[in-house]
């Protein structure tokens, strides 16, 4: 059931101002995205069409607390197939970006974020691998300019999100 008190009329603008999601209101709910989505094919719990509808209706809390937003693989099939060029996967990404400002992010993203902040790479590459590179005659890995990466975390304010997570 839908309650009007649940609806936040400003929510659609919050989402549509993020790059790639501008055409969100053009979605006419044809369902192509869900029909062609490889994830929706294997689970009933993920429905990209429905997520777009929630945004249009302003169901902010429901959308941001819906764990299924984390199931999109960003294969971009929906982006290519949408007759209205809605950029469906980009809307899902915008939902995720907002969700992490309000609630804990899935652990894997915490780990990726902290590895990137620490080393410039998404994974901490073990010493063993670095030695193996040498043995195989491969050139050393790029150093990963950690200082610049940290400054970018600050400049984008993403460091705030991460620090809140760490507290």
């Amino acid at each position: 059931m839908l309650r009007t008190t649940e609806m936040d009329p400003k929510f659609k603008y919050e989402i549509s101002k993020t790059p790639g999601s501008e055409k969100l209101m053009l979605c006419f709910q044809c369902g192509t995205c869900t029909a062609d989505c490889p994830i929706a094919r294997f689970t009933d719990s993920y429905r990209p069409r429905k997520l777009v509808r929630m945004v249009q209706l302003g169901l902010k809390d429901r959308a941001l607390s819906d764990d299924s937003i984390w199931l999109c693989t960003s294969c971009f099939t929906c982006v290519d197939h949408c007759p209205q060029d809605v950029g469906t996967a980009e809307v899902v990404r915008a939902l995720r970006n907002l969700a992490v400002k309000e609630r804990p992010m899935p652990r894997v993203y915490k780990e990726l974020s902290s590895a990137i902040r620490k080393t410039g790479y998404a994974y901490e590459i073990p010493q063993l691998r670095l030695r193996q590179r040498e043995e195989k005659g491969l050139p050393p890995l790029p150093k990963g300019d950690v200082e610049s990466v940290r400054k970018l975390f600050k400049a984008t304010s993403f460091s705030k999100t991460i620090e809140e997570e760490e507290e």
């Binding site: 993020t18 790059p19 984390w70 960003s74 990404r93 915008a94 995720r96 970006n97 992490v100 992010m105 993203y109 990726l112 974020s113 990137i116 998404a122 970018l152 975390f153 984008t156 304010s157 993403f158 999100t161």
Partner: peptide, 9 residues
């Protein structure tokens, strides 16, 4: 890897 959590990053 950070696009899902922060597009600007």
């Amino acid at each position: 890897p950070l696009d899902p959590v922060n597009h600007d990053m």
